[in-house]
């Protein structure tokens, strides 16, 4: 979420000559960098150093191992289903909440936030209570041969649950801040509702949208606790990447475990770099035009 993009008026107070004395600036930067180093950089470096402890060949071999490949495929499938669904929901929810006033709005926003703060232990448990053999729907599902938990649908559901609020959470403040004058103008000029959304709203929110998608995606791929409860841990079938990491680690296969883990860390870094690049391109374009 780079300032240059979110603040289209392009005002940089540092450049405007108002800033702290150099000493304080240096101090602040040092403190921040130290904090991030201790909490982020050291753990990250540790992941990669352990992943490469046995060399590049072992690293690549452990990523090519059949069970790991299946885990990667399952994780991608899960993200591919859950992210678009939550994207659609996020847009609908933000539209309703930001553009309209109705009683109970705070309650609705809170309920949308709720999955975020529900312990992964609970978010897995609820689907077991619902779809488990001893649960509400379990006996019926079992009689009809439908598998939800301990199979892919359960993993997808749990993932949708844990990534539920992210897109909506990104969009609501953004759309609230932008108000609705532009949309109203378009509508008065005769555009249809959908055209207004596509031509007016969407360009305004696309960066928030992208950021929400990136967050959802990262979380969808990295979720461990909830998925662990509903997965059943069947090797080569219902293990996602994070579960595969745990399995490898518990098999005393430390280098391979961290190699697979580094894949997720790497994925996160790549998406974030890509995002920065896109933002930079947009700013270049706007400054030329």
């Amino acid at each position: 979420m780079h300032p240059g993009v979110l603040a289209p008026k392009g005002r940089n107070p540092a450049a405007a000559g108002q800033s702290e004395p150099l000493a304080i600036r240096l101090l602040l930067v040092t403190v921040v960098l130290c904090f991030l180093a201790v909490f982020l950089v050291v753990p990250l470096v540790s992941v990669f150093s352990q992943a490469l402890a046995k060399g590049w060949e072992a690293y690549l071999a452990s990523l090519y191992e059949p069970d790991t490949r299946i885990a990667i495929r399952l994780t991608l499938l899960t993200a591919a289903i859950s992210v678009p669904l939550n994207l659609l929901f996020g847009i609908a929810a933000a539209w309703a909440i930001a553009k309209f006033d109705f009683p109970g709005k705070s309650l609705l926003v809170t309920l949308i936030d709720l999955p975020f703060s529900v312990s992964p232990v609970i978010s897995g448990l609820i689907y077991v209570l619902l779809f488990g053999l001893q649960g509400w729907l379990g006996p019926w599902l079992s009689a009809h041969g439908i598998k939800i938990i301990f199979a892919v649908p359960g993993i997808v559901l749990a993932t949708i649950f844990v990534t539920f609020p992210f897109v909506a959470r990104e969009l609501i403040p953004l759309m609230e801040a932008q108000g609705k004058e532009e949309e109203e103008a378009a509508l008065v000029l005769g555009a249809s509702g959908f055209t207004t959304f596509r031509r007016v709203t969407l360009p305004n929110i696309k960066w928030g949208l992208l950021y929400g998608v990136i967050l959802s995606n990262a979380r969808a791929m990295g979720e461990f606790g909830a998925v662990s409860v509903v997965s059943g841990h069947i090797r080569g079938a219902t293990n996602t990447i994070p579960l595969q990491v745990e399995i490898l680690y518990n098999d005393y296969n430390y280098a391979a475990a961290f190699a697979v883990a580094s894949l997720l860390a790497f994925l996160a870094v790549v998406t974030l770099v890509a995002k920065s690049f896109v933002e930079w391109r947009i700013r270049e374009n706007s400054s030329c035009g």
Partner: peptide
């Protein structure tokens, strides 16, 4: 930019890792 990207790491890294 690197620092900016790093901030999201805890989010992307699976909790077990």
């Amino acid at each position: 930019r690197i620092v900016d990207a790093l901030v999201d790491l805890p989010f992307a890294l699976p909790t077990a890792v």
